[in-house]
Design a protein around this nucleic acid. Sequence first.
DNA 1: TTGTAAGCGTTATCAA
DNA 2: TTGATAACGCTTACAA
Lengths: 344, 344
Amino acid sequence: MQQLKAVVSAQDVADRAGVSRSAVSRTFTPGASVSDATRARVMKAAEELGYHVNHLARGLVRNRSGIVCLIASEVDTPYRASLVRWMTQYLQEAGKVAMLINTDRSDASVSAALQQAINFRADASIILSGMPDSAITCLCYKHGQQLVLINRDESLPGTLNISLDARPSAEMAVKAFVRAGCSRIAFVNSLAGTSSLLKRERDFLAAAEKAGVAAQVERFGSTSYESGQILAQRLLTRDIRPDAVYCATDLLACGFMDEARHRFALRIPEDLCIIGHDNIPQSGWSSYNLTTFAQPVEQFARDAIRWLVETKAQQDTLRPKSEQQPEQRLYQPDVVWRSSVRGG
Amino acid sequence: MQQLKAVVSAQDVADRAGVSRSAVSRTFTPGASVSDATRARVMKAAEELGYHVNHLARGLVRNRSGIVCLIASEVDTPYRASLVRWMTQYLQEAGKVAMLINTDRSDASVSAALQQAINFRADASIILSGMPDSAITCLCYKHGQQLVLINRDESLPGTLNISLDARPSAEMAVKAFVRAGCSRIAFVNSLAGTSSLLKRERDFLAAAEKAGVAAQVERFGSTSYESGQILAQRLLTRDIRPDAVYCATDLLACGFMDEARHRFALRIPEDLCIIGHDNIPQSGWSSYNLTTFAQPVEQFARDAIRWLVETKAQQDTLRPKSEQQPEQRLYQPDVVWRSSVRGG
DNA sequence: TTGTAAGCGTTATCAA
DNA sequence: TTGATAACGCTTACAA
């Protein structure tokens, strides 16, 4: 296998096809006017030479790179990984390409990474992370990118805000617990302080109060399996041990369940009812069989990318972004009944 | 919050700072010679204007984009997600940026996505996927990209090949089974036919033969939890039911364990010993406590990125890539002893 | 429909 | 150290 000529440009193709280089350009521009004969000759020459349009140059002149940034932390976590997967997939299908920006480490690395997004003149950024730092979103916004925010609170004009309605799941969880005959219910959360997680907590407490049952809250660490274990240790050694627990995420719930079973010898759902949130794949594994609320991740991705494409088309013809309303989309979670709640 | 002037270029900064635009360029080029006074004035003006170097233009003229493609399928799977996470992280720390290419769907979408990689003139591609299609690697290679292959068989000149030694784990697994007193051992695999998975199988069978124990093989579907369940159904309804199973991946092992326990009422490790491979987070969850072999994923990432940077530096001064040897790096797995094997 | 020519925002070469 | 100037590969008026 040989390497091709280092760089083959439109000029090379034009020379070989015996046309001008604008003819080549037009051949590769959807909707440009080229005769079939010319197009055929250009395509043939391009094929033979192994020509590929240089998107760096194209992006430069069009002022539109085709790059969309996916900004996220903890992409190796099940829920986040699935978000990344679907976003990437739909982006590709729309002819765009995903640039993955990791925001796990220090602030310095975050802003460095963000710099990259701006440096590459990304057309849009999709913020998947629960990171509370809103300076990051502003920066992208200021540089004229389209912005999609997943499960976040802020709403800048001209952005798309995708979030899940926490109310119905909170109410269903309380109802399920009450129906199961539970009286000592608890909410388990991380200390992350993400707005969407806090909202789940608030809505659950409100629903409990409305139903006339007391509910306690325990928070610890990050949103992980291990935190779930520790939260179980704390909650299950209390004087009044809860008989029903709603976990802010499935990861917490899995840790909680395992600890309850293996360390406290509790049976689920006989001794303890558990409900989670997100419907990560592991919730369906038969060791857990966790009743949970599914986020329609694939739909988030499909809708987000569609919005990106459609809004861009409008933007080019219409009023400036700052006059536009932010678009709020509230999705309903899908309840997934399994066997971690009695009488489910 | 306002949007800034649509585009602020080096010229704008130069005007405001009262210098030439090459002075601006040099200020943002590490190692270029600029006086402190000039640099300071440029920086100040850049700050005020909100200037960011345009990497599209820079990449165009330098013929080096700073983009590295991560090509993978099933990025929402635990092992793959962790690979993506670490690669992205180290890429960022090296001042590069990750472009994520999903190869899950049809061939058409794959090659379209790959086009993007080439179109954006990625400096390098890292193939994380087990996808057996080698046309994809050739294409990247032909376009002068650096190439890193993870757990794949091919070796093109001038590429870095990272893989895990399957031999020692195979031998340790057999030894552990024998020590536990197992006599009917089996290997469980997907039908994926990835070279690395096939190698695990071959090496395990060889090790079993060497140890003088018979071993059967069962294969099914993709490398997933669900396949593990089905494989358990097949294997555990056989006339001679195995008492020890080595699974090609942890995901298969988790499915196998759950099915063995919940459908066949088998105790692990008393009735059945299980060993997995990869050490995904779930293997450590207390419902599984799976003995397994860890892939040093973070080290893969660190070494791969370092190689990218160092080799590039050499390449620019030295002989052409085609004369270089492919670099083979064989890593040793870390055994993680847990409680899915008797007497572990 | 086609070709010519003027950019797009950089960097790199070369004098000064 | 600095500033003109020529690329880099492409798109897009504009004219033919």
